[in-house]
Write a protein that binds this DNA or RNA. Structure first.
Lengths: 210, 210, 210, 210
DNA sequence: GGCTAAGCGAGACGGTACGTCTAGTCTTGGG
DNA sequence: CCCAAGACTAGACGTACCGTCTCGCTTAGCC
């Protein structure tokens, strides 16, 4: 059984090394094809044809199209930005939600949708996306929430995971079940309502004027 | 061009009518197969083999497996329960969220996952699920929120869609990106935090140290 | 397991019948390709491309190229001619050897060569050729030899199989190990020498020099 | 362009010389593999894997598997035995036919069958086998026949090639179209009938008494 | 009771893609 | 120049499903 791994980092073990140019071309072609013909129509055969590479050259590196597109996608998406410590939790979360909305609105959002769709029936892909896409991003959010709790900005009794889910869950929900379009304004509204809670302000000047 | 419609309601046009037993067998087999071999492995060919029915008999009724499974799924899931008007909005939403969690935990949850996954790359299926699964359920929720606003239980300034997203979004999020298991307790915690908001109780800092 | 048989003779069992035109086209293309590109280059893929038929349509009928070409070959070669009882054994054998030489010299000879070559490492093909090509032809020859023995034309002590081998073996030998070309004259010479035996005429040494 | 020649005889031209051990190992492995898995399954890849040698090391010496196996085969088969001049032609031919039958019955026979099969569709291999296997053996036979003619043992009018074909053709015929097994007894019977001819003895006291 | 339109099982058909295999060549790094 | 290792292009393999298309037969419902 072949390892089907990208050339292991570190010293080269012997034999002709994998051609890095080929790798790059294939990754590029995979993403371009997703954009042009849609995730479902991206096949190993098509990627090979597009790049002029033999199918074996692809299968040597990735076991199937989903994994190939995942790698290509993760290599393309902008790196994680570490949290700016000078911001309030609310500001930090807002910035991060906006960034996610912008990703979702672009070609990467369409690719991610395809991948998440595929992942629903592909255990391996699901694990991969959880570990390489979702978890690192959640960690940043959780960190922000933890800081907010320590600083007194957020309620000490909050379950951090639930906070993240309440803020980001709706964004993924709208990505995948698009009954209405995503926008930064939408993200702002989610943020506002979740921060404020659903009940009317206790101090409401509802007490009528005498 | 074949119509590929379920027997049109209304008077029978002539010719031998479709066999309702066949229809039922096929629907049953489709769901059983999803359970046994997973959504991806359910093919028209396999459903035909399992039921001893000809492929044409299936294609005459549904244009492809996704639609077939969708119909089977929608026919299986328990009907919508109209809102109990005597409950508070919070109680009504809690009951509905629990019901959804229970669906997600069972075989129907797995089927829905497969369908939603497929829908990410299948426009027609996506529309179908939006109209026949999601929207009716959203409507009930929106109704509850509207009532709550009218009764003064909920803040008048809330965007009803956003409320629903903040409560149900996390549930779909955990269904499809299962970094942790779903449970009714989790639903309760989402409900609690979203209702209360994220900020510490206003009266807290007021209590001065004696 | 599919039977991979040409449509069974007799009444049609149900389902759409195989298209006899397709079958004929494929058989024709197979032979043409053997002629044009050589036995080794004939692949299912190429036959499919040439005929505009799907690969499955070929695999439904024949399990591999060798069998396909065998069928095509056997369908093409002229039918067995029953022995003419009015001829002497020698005349009958001579006619049959000439006919075989003529086959060997034409395109069918090249095809047969390829098939016999393949058969050396393909048990199934070998059996097939033995039963469908070789044995029926041997039977005719054996019959002639038997008649010859009965009529007194041939020695009663002959082993019929050995007679056939001695006459036809050299022809196959020259087909497959072509150190020199085949011709009807060659067949005549084989016939002459085998009939006469290798030793000098017994009466020769008897003629004393006057 | 690589020469792909066995190490050229004569002085070594410069650079590291080929490792004779490797050559021997490869030849051995090739024959063993023919025996174990059959001619068709012997691939360069497999020979390389078995010997732990790189594919290039094989391709540097032989252009393809057939040639490799041919070399290995020719190196293995027992050398030609010069004709014993004290024997009659018949005795010499009988010994040689028996020797050939014994080769055909052993592992070398199976290898030769594979090679001859392959040669039907491989011009180069065919030439190679003709020159290196067949022709030298024919020469010995022709020599014997020539002697026999000179000594008066054989008819002066015989075509020597045809004699050889009539005696050895049947043996190759039975090797490659094995409708019945080969044996030394069979060779004897061929020899007997071909020497005696097919017609009844002229002096047969068949003429009945009146 | 016969006519007719459609349903039905069976299975052929043109396609597309799969993932694997082998051929023969090329490219490393190290003798 | 040799060697081991292994990447590379090329192309065929045989299989699985797709969705469509005949076949010959069955079955309701209307005339």
């Amino acid at each position: 059984m072949t390892l089907r791994q990208p050339p292991s980092p570190g010293p080269h073990a012997g034999g002709r090394p994998r051609d890095a140019d080929r790798t790059a071309e294939i990754l590029r072609a995979a993403l371009d094809l997703v954009e042009e013909v849609g995730f479902r129509q991206v096949t190993v055969e098509r990627v090979a044809a597009r790049t002029g590479v033999a199918k074996t050259t692809i299968y040597r590196r990735w076991p199937n199209v989903s994994v190939l597109v995942t790698e290509a996608f993760l290599a393309e998406v902008t790196a994680l930005v570490p949290v700016d410590e000078t911001l309030t939790a609310r500001e930090a979360l807002r910035g991060s939600m906006h960034a996610l909305v912008r990703v979702f609105q672009g070609r990467d959002g369409q690719i991610l949708r395809g991948l998440l769709g595929q992942a629903q029936t592909d255990e391996v892909l699901r694990e991969s996306l959880l570990h390489r896409w979702l978890t690192p991003r959640r960690q940043l959010g959780l960190e922000v929430v933890r800081h907010g709790k320590q600083s007194g900005e957020l309620d000490k009794n909050l379950d951090e995971d639930v906070v993240i889910d309440a803020l980001y869950g709706p964004l993924y929900y709208r990505l995948m079940m698009p009954y209405a379009p995503l926008s930064e304004a939408y993200a702002d509204e989610v943020l506002r309502q979740v921060f404020a809670g659903l009940e009317p302000p206790a101090s409401d000047p509802v007490r009528p004027a005498p």
